[in-house]
Measured scan of single mutants.
Amino acid sequence: GPGLTDLFKTEKAAVKKMAKAIMADPSKADDVYQKWADKGYTLTQLSDFLKSKTRGKYDRVYNGYMTYR
């Protein structure tokens, strides 16, 4: 089956995709945050998933999740 690194890459891609969806349409934020909360994502995990070469690119999404939880 898929190894943990593959799983991480898949999760990371999914999280980034959802983060971009929030940035494009902030009204989606609560739905996405709820999904992440259901998956039990911690802020540390989210921070790892949303690492970007562009500093602060996903800060709004991260901060939103922090206040959501």
Rank of each mutant, 00 (worst) to 15 (best):
K57H: 06
V32C: 06
E11G: 03
K57N: 05
D30C: 15
L7W: 15
D48N: 14
T67N: 14
V32A: 06
L43T: 06
Y58C: 02
G40K: 05
T5F: 05
L50A: 01
T44W: 09
A13D: 07
L43H: 04
D25P: 01
T54H: 13
S52R: 04
A29D: 02
L7N: 15
A29S: 08
A21M: 13
G64D: 06
K9L: 08
V61H: 01
W36P: 00
L46C: 02
K35D: 11
G40W: 03
L50Y: 01
P2Q: 13
P26F: 08
I22Y: 01
V61W: 01
A24T: 09
Y41M: 09
K28E: 05
G56K: 05
R55H: 12
M18Y: 06
G3R: 09
G3Q: 13
L7V: 11
V15H: 01
D38I: 10
A13P: 02
T54Q: 09
T42M: 03
L4A: 13
T54Y: 09
D38M: 11
K57M: 09
E11M: 05
F49Q: 01
T10C: 15
A29P: 01
K53M: 06
S52I: 10
D48G: 14
F8L: 11
S27A: 09
K17A: 13
L4C: 15
M18R: 03
M23C: 05
D25M: 04
A37S: 11
L7P: 13
Y65D: 01
K53R: 10
L4T: 13
A24L: 12
A13N: 07
K9P: 07
K57E: 09
T10Y: 10
Y33D: 00
G56S: 06
D38E: 14
W36E: 00
A21Y: 09
T42H: 03
P26N: 06
T44G: 10
A21L: 14
G40M: 05
E11H: 05
L46H: 00
G40T: 02
A14F: 09
S47Y: 12
Y41A: 00
V15M: 03
S27L: 08
K28I: 15
F8M: 11
T54D: 11
Y33C: 01
D48S: 15
A29H: 03
F8I: 10
A29E: 05
K51R: 11
K35Q: 14
K28T: 10
A24D: 11
V32T: 08
D31R: 10
G3T: 14
Q34F: 06
R55E: 14
S27P: 03
Y65P: 00
S47L: 07
K12G: 07
G56T: 06
L4H: 13
V61C: 02
W36R: 00
K53E: 11
A37D: 06
T10L: 11
Y68T: 03
I22Q: 00
D38S: 12
F8Q: 09
K57T: 05
D25F: 05
Y62N: 03
Y33N: 01
M23A: 03
R69F: 09
L50W: 02
S27Y: 06
K12T: 07
K53D: 12
A19F: 02
K51C: 15
K57S: 04
A21H: 05
Q45E: 07
F49D: 01
L4I: 14
L7E: 14
L43S: 07
D30G: 10
A37Y: 14
A19M: 03
V32Q: 03
R55T: 13
R69C: 14
S52Y: 05
S27W: 07
K9W: 10
M23H: 03
Y62C: 08
G1E: 11
A19Y: 02
Y62W: 08
D25T: 04
G1Q: 13
